[in-house]
Design a protein around this nucleic acid. Structure first.
Lengths: 158, 158
DNA sequence: GTCGAATTGACAACGTGTTGTCAATGGGGG
DNA sequence: CCCCCATTGACAACACGTTGTCAATTCGAC
């Protein structure tokens, strides 16, 4: 490998590499999550939405804001979970239209059922690349996401 | 579950954080790419596929292998690009069934048209977080993707 | 040379996220 | 008190990636 090559990678190639790597990483995590969720009768997206209300019920719009997604995407997934009997809408004393989304006992059991596989894969990943580097990588990705977010049009999304 | 040291998050939370951050980052890059590609009559996915054959024609299966996607996904995007007149299938002397996918002159012009916006955003991103940290982050993400890939079932995907 | 496995393209079904549009609800300014 | 407007839910259309299945083609073992 060349040391101090005079031709440093230009920003454009850096951005392309970051985006392509992000797409690839997303695909890998999605595949892993899908494989872990399937035995519990869930999908990656439904697991994610259900996981957002494990401790406290939230409105669909609130979940969307917390996850950085559109409320329509969360709405459809939430409706499917209710149809599956894994979650339910509860009346919201503060807003008659925006009901509170909460998991049912069956939904809680489904999420708990993923725990062992989740823990086992997490342990293997931490073993493969080291917990410290894993933590550092997540932190770096968070900074990158923040930077990209701050450069987008202010009214992007929603 | 005993109290954990605040500086030592368990592997399970680390994995969840990594996946959720990856999903968020993917969404941000996708939105940015979509916004840059739209004026050129492209989408993020079509830009990506077209970008894979800028220098040399490849078969659809070959592109899929190079991008880590299923060949069916690439096939549909490629067919759409051909229908748009931005690419074409050329006879493959080495394989009568697996034709060679190549951009048309119009397709090349479309990709070139994205260049300025791409370069401008890349410069702003490099300015926002520093080219060195950006490069380090991409490298860390690549290692994470490699690690996850190596832990998946050997026959996963395809 | 022939047969069987692997590769490849075609087609369909599904889950998901996005944008766009519309009506219902709720809060704040007049 | 009433009206404007942001928030919210509902519904539809679209792009995309995935899995599954099948037929055509290619290549290697025999």
């Amino acid at each position: 490998m060349a040391a101090e090559s005079p031709t440093a990678p230009d920003a454009q190639e850096l951005l392309s590499g970051a985006a392509l790597t992000s797409f690839r990483l997303n695909g890998r995590f999605l595949a892993v999550a899908e494989a872990m969720a399937r035995p519990a009768g869930l999908t990656a997206a439904r697991w994610q939405v259900l996981g957002a209300v494990l401790h406290e019920p939230l409105t669909v719009s609130g979940i969307a804001r917390a996850m950085g997604m559109t409320r329509q995407a969360v709405q459809r997934t939430a409706d499917l979970l209710v149809g599956q009997g894994l979650a339910e809408y509860r009346p919201n004393p503060a807003h008659s239209r925006a009901k509170l989304f909460a998991p049912t006992e069956e939904g809680l059991a489904a999420v708990r059922g993923i725990g062992p596989a989740h823990g086992e894969f997490a342990a293997r990943l931490a073993d493969a690349m080291g917990p410290e580097e894993l933590a550092r990588t997540v932190e770096a990705m968070r900074r990158l996401a923040d930077a990209v977010e701050s450069l987008e049009e202010p009214d992007a999304g929603q």
